[in-house]
Design a protein around this nucleic acid. Structure first.
Lengths: 210, 210
DNA sequence: TAGATTGTTAATCGATTAACAATC
DNA sequence: TAGATTGTTAATCGATTAACAATC
């Protein structure tokens, strides 16, 4: 359905635009400009206009963008004006932090199931959910029409879990384990690794003793 | 101390190289090649060689890279062969997941203090640490020689916390709140927003009912 | 109208890749 | 030696930005 030839990096900026527009709307504002958005996001106004222009014309010359309208357009483009179902694999401290994170439900990402392989955890409550046996993964993903998976298991198990998710038909994966997953090209995947980010920031530090 | 003119994006790939090299070493391997690293990371071999060449010559023609040696060089370049102290602000579920994450200590990032503003939480244990009053932030950061801050508070408090961290002298921030922080250019900052990543992945999904 | 801001083009800037001499 | 793989250059590719006509 979506337009061809949109650079990945542009798609990854759209959620930032959506996020800041939502904040401005919350503050009672109804109109904004590429200038204002740029200042708030530390992105050049030209880039914002260019990014938006891949998808249509959403502003008015001399006037800027109607916030409400641009929000609705970005939601439509990103396909986040509908509900998506998510499975979390791993019911440890990270899994618990994820099910406790209100941002997902707020943005139409519904955490539908949580899995673990540890018999101590299976059957326990985690937030509003009961932890399920990971051997039931494929079955539940099909039954509950789950499209996205979040990997919150130890590094050594991450690749195996990724493969199970892919086999079960999940179409995108968010990976919290510090490892590059090998999965088919048609399954989208992003990794979050706080240690890698800290390491890249350590590079820029002036040397000084701890 | 570090070399000028290294693109940010190159610096951000170095931790990936370090990570995969460590995995290969763990598996008993002693030599690798840009080809092998590339396959494992889904990065072109030419790019890996080019990235490394910014910092020196670490391989041997016809032979590849000695894993142990390259690991030690990357650690030196990234300045992660020394200990860095970290403060976490926010002692909720996310704060707990972070202090429970063994990856930090394993990689020489020492979580030295955890702060919260909630009197219910102040004084409680969180992992090995006692939650401190956030009003003591500047004092403790100075005392304990903390260089990095991790923000794990609700969105509305994130900007204020960032400013306190900067004032206290923190030199890099990892931000888990879904907001673009306004901080001075000399303080490095990365944000982790799982919702933004899910939204960008939703863009690529074929439409289909939930 | 005058002022402001969009959407878009062309120029610039920067990152990736192909190719290969050097050499282990 | 023959085969393999590095380090590096130059070409390619792609993303960002400057500038401005259009127009609200």
């Amino acid at each position: 359905m979506h337009l061809p030839n949109i650079p990945d990096i542009v798609v990854q900026r759209l959620p930032l635009y959506l996020r800041i527009l939502t904040i401005l709307r919350e503050q009672g504002q109804t109109i904004t400009s590429s200038q204002e958005l740029g200042t708030r996001l530390d992105i050049s106004p030209a880039q914002i206009r260019k990014d938006l222009s891949y998808f249509g014309e959403f502003g008015k010359q001399g006037m800027g963008y109607e916030i409400e309208f641009l929000i609705s357009q970005l939601k439509r483009i990103l396909q986040v004006n509908r509900k998506w179902n998510i499975a979390i694999v791993g019911a440890g401290a990270l899994g618990y932090a994820l099910v406790s994170h209100f941002g997902f439900e707020q943005w139409n990402f519904h955490i539908t199931a949580v899995f673990d392989k540890d018999p101590q955890r299976i059957g326990q409550r985690l937030g509003n959910l009961t932890v399920l046996d990971v051997t039931k993964l494929a079955e539940v993903i099909l039954e509950k029409n789950i499209q996205f998976g979040i990997i919150a298991v130890p590094t050594k198990e991450a690749q195996g879990v990724a493969e199970q998710l892919v086999t079960a038909g999940v179409r995108a994966i968010l990976n919290y384990a510090p490892v590059s997953l090998k999965i088919p090209k048609h399954v989208h995947c992003h990794s979050m690794d706080p240690v890698a980010l800290l390491q890249s920031m350590a590079y820029y530090q002036e040397t000084q003793d701890a």
